[in-house]
């Protein structure tokens, strides 16, 4: 059972710019970890490093204290990742996209029966609203078997109705996954997160509440 993801001392530079100097984190199954930081602080970089699509200069990644190679994250499906930008084929209908993610009828039904999905199944992905698209993408990725999930700005540009649905879904989802969540809509993140951390000057700091975000310079 994979229930603890650990990252120690991740470092990453782009040329002479050092984005991540010393970033460590632990993520357990059953918790949502909020990640904050100003634009350019390396949040997305960190998520891509964890997902294995960006090579770190130095990294020690472990699951249940067992070292794993970042290159194995995708093929072994250790971690799911919701990127900032939409990734679904825009010309396909929702009802044709769902079987791309799930072979079995029962798994497909779980998506087809999810709130809001039934009314959009005949629509082409490119015509969905931002909220519908984001919610659908989250549902698709979250229902895959990854024990850990990285969500990059799931609340951005989302209408309130879908935002609430996403929050409700995350509360249910964390029972079976560990979730790392980053978004500038900090109140939404604080509402669902169990712990938080701030990336500042390439280093990760724990932040328990809103006041810590102020103290660490993320908020005024």
């Amino acid at each position: 059972m994979k229930h603890m993801l650990q990252l120690y001392s991740a470092q990453k530079s782009f040329g002479s710019k050092k984005v991540l100097l010393d970033v460590s984190l632990g993520l357990s199954k059953g918790e949502i970890l909020g990640l904050f930081g100003p634009n350019g602080s390396g949040k997305s970089t960190l998520l891509k490093i964890l997902f294995g699509t960006l090579k770190a200069d130095a990294i020690d990644l472990r699951i249940n204290e067992q070292p794993i190679s970042p290159e194995s994250v995708i093929p072994e499906q250790y971690i799911g990742y919701l990127p900032q930008d939409s990734f679904l084929p825009k010309r396909l209908k929702v009802r044709d996209i769902i079987p791309l993610f799930f072979e079995h009828g029962d798994d497909q039904d779980a998506i087809f029966r999810a709130p809001f999905v039934e009314k959009i199944t005949a629509q082409v992905a490119g015509t969905l609203s931002m909220g519908e698209l984001r919610y659908l993408e989250l549902l698709l990725i979250a229902n895959l078997d990854h024990p850990f999930l990285l969500l990059d700005e799931p609340f951005s540009m989302i209408e309130p109705l879908y935002k609430e649905k996403i929050k409700e879904f995350l509360f249910v989802l964390k029972e079976k996954k560990g979730i790392l969540l980053t978004d500038h809509y900090y109140q939404d993140v604080l509402e669902v997160s169990d712990r938080n951390m701030v990336l500042k000057d390439g280093v990760s700091y724990p932040a328990a509440k809103e006041q810590d975000l102020i103290n660490l310079g993320y908020l005024r």
Binding site: F51, I74, E76, Y81, F87, P89, L100
Partner: peptide, 18 residues
């Protein structure tokens, strides 16, 4: 034209090389 779709395949366990 469709670079972003790689994330769908990554989530399904397919690397770009594969």
């Amino acid at each position: 034209f469709q670079k972003q779709q790689y994330y769908m395949y990554y989530n399904l366990g397919y690397t770009k090389r594969y």
